[in-house]
Amino acid sequence: MAADNIDDVVDGLAAIVRDARRDGDRVGYFAALYRQVTVEVRAAIHAGLFDDGPRMDRFDTLFGNRYFDAHDAWRRDRGGPRCWREAFGRLDDPETVIVQHLVLGVSAHINLDLAVAAARTAPGAAVHGLRRDFLLINDILARVVLAVQRSVGAVSPYLGLLDELGGRGDEHVLDFGIRRSREEAWHNALVLAGQDTAAQEATIDLLDVRAAVLARLIARPGGLLRPALELIRRTESQDVPEVIAHLDRAVAPTG
């Protein structure tokens, strides 16, 4: 599908979530998180919180279409960007736990798509004017990720126990990791905004390769994370439609 505005992005994500619940498809895990982030961004646009609301609508639409294109390419012929192929390729893997599916989607979208969407929303020197609104999304994303992480704990008891034992430390680490990835995406957007089409394509390809390597590390981590993930897998819900429904109501609707 192709979205023309942020309302189309919300509707498209809602359709993916709805179909995933019907089919028991784990693609709905990240789509549920992403839908809620987009709803919150739309609410912030309507509330006038951004310096340029129409520009943020265009930005979010370009960002959303990157995800829809990757999703459609995977469904069509297992194609699309490398990092998204890594993420989608784990959907039927019984060893990949809920939180890994979420992180794989977040990682691909931030480490590849975000810089591309920012540079195409504000090419050339205009990209510098996007900075404040770009940073404001960090706060929205962190709030939604925190709510969804708490929601995951209800369907993944061992992960919930780790959260309780660790207090909010792990949530701060996750928040910091997202912010640091977004900061890197901002620097990549500055590079892309100053390049011609051919140079952009070469840079995007390099970003995709790097994001794909990171995806493989997320999917198959080493060290002490491996036995911890096995315990998480054994205790978390395998009812995919119910997990999707649970994740999709982690954040109360605001717009």
Rank of each mutant, 00 (worst) to 15 (best):
D139F: 13
H172K: 12
R22H: 06
D92F: 00
I98W: 01
L162P: 00
R55Q: 12
R210T: 10
V9E: 10
G223W: 02
D19F: 07
D60N: 15
D7E: 12
V27P: 00
D25A: 13
Q149W: 07
A219T: 05
Y29D: 09
G80I: 00
G105P: 03
D239K: 06
A87K: 05
G169W: 06
G12S: 08
A154R: 15
S107F: 03
Y34V: 00
I204N: 04
H109R: 12
A122S: 14
G255F: 06
A125S: 14
H128D: 11
S181A: 15
V209Y: 04
D25P: 10
L224F: 09
R226K: 12
S151Y: 04
G80C: 06
R234P: 01
L206W: 13
D60C: 13
I45G: 04
P94R: 03
M56S: 07
P253T: 08
R216N: 13
V41G: 02
T197Q: 14
R58A: 12
G24P: 11
S107Q: 14
A211R: 10
S151G: 11
A189Y: 03
T254Q: 15
C83W: 09
R42N: 02
E230D: 15
Y158W: 06
F68W: 07
G53L: 13
G64K: 11
H246P: 05
A219Q: 00
D25S: 15
G194Y: 08
E95K: 03
T121P: 03
D163R: 13
H71W: 14
